[in-house]
Amino acid sequence: MATATGIYHTNYRQDLALRQTRADWVRLALLVLFVVVAPFVASPYWLTILNLVGIAAIGAIGLNILTGFTGLISLGQGAFLAVGAYTSGILVARLHWPTPLAIVAAVLLTGVVGAVIGLPAVRLKGLYLAIATLAAQVMIIYLVRTWDVVTGGVDSLVVPRPEVFGTTIRSDFIWYWVILAFVVVATLAALNLFRTGLGRAFVAIRDQDIAADVIGVTVWKYKLWSFAISSGFVGLAGALLAHYRSIVTWERFTIDVSITYLAMIIVGGLGSVAGSIYGAAFMTVLPALIQRAGQAIRDVLPGLSQQLPAVQLGVFGLVIILFLIFEPRGLARIWERIRDYFRLWPFRY
């Protein structure tokens, strides 16, 4: 397959297009093919995994907007997910709102909470900010656990199956299409965000905040916007998680979750929307594979399969370390390198 040797734009329309070469379109077609065929061939187990990948992808895109594109580290991802999940869950389970409306409310509320949590970012950056978000994580989870009149406290909150247009969404198969639609919307929204002035301002802050200030970017305002928009995405992921799992407990939103999401965007690639999705897929499928491997060797090595949680944690940590040392720009960069190799093949450059 011959590809273009350069990109020559002759009008503004071409310049603005998200996909510029024929290879881009072919890649998109292959992706669509995979996405459409996958739910028909996947076993119920893998279908669940695919759904979780989709939800994680939305959350990871959200975190990447904040950490990868604006350069603000957040250790509060788990808490933001919790806000989204509990808001949507409570609105549906206790106040009997329609599910779509509850999800919208969750997105907005998480965005507002995100902006409030981001307030220290007006004065802080780097590590101090990371610790401030860690504090937010601890406080929000504490609030969830003690405010039991509303959240159910340490007991779990049961969310009824969502009902849309008179039909109840029950099967994983239907959920797959619902989640897929959200992933597509979130991806397009994020890709287009960085073509607007707002998104460009985020990138300017990441690259050099003082320089950004000098060229007229109001740093504190855009930092808060970044927190709000990023949290909106994460709130959506949380709300979807609540309705998909139909049960919400605080244990699903601990600091470990925050770290897992950070791992996703690092493995995938900081500052890359596609990378967020690769990372979400990688970090969701990896534990499943480890679990599978553990079951397979249960008869051979019973001792090791009991160590599964420890092994899983260790592999997580190792993956983070190895990626950071050997490929700090993540899977997205590895993919680019493979693509470039074949684009120029058989020549080296």
Partner: peptide, 28 residues
């Protein structure tokens, strides 16, 4: 040592990864 000169986020994350590995060693 391989992380010398990398961004602050990367260095923080590498120690987070390290903490996961050490904890899993202790658990194991």
């Amino acid at each position: 040592r391989p992380m010398v000169g990398e961004s602050a986020i990367a260095v923080i994350m590498v120690t987070i990864g390290l903490s996961a590995v050490l904890r899993s060693l202790v658990q194991g």
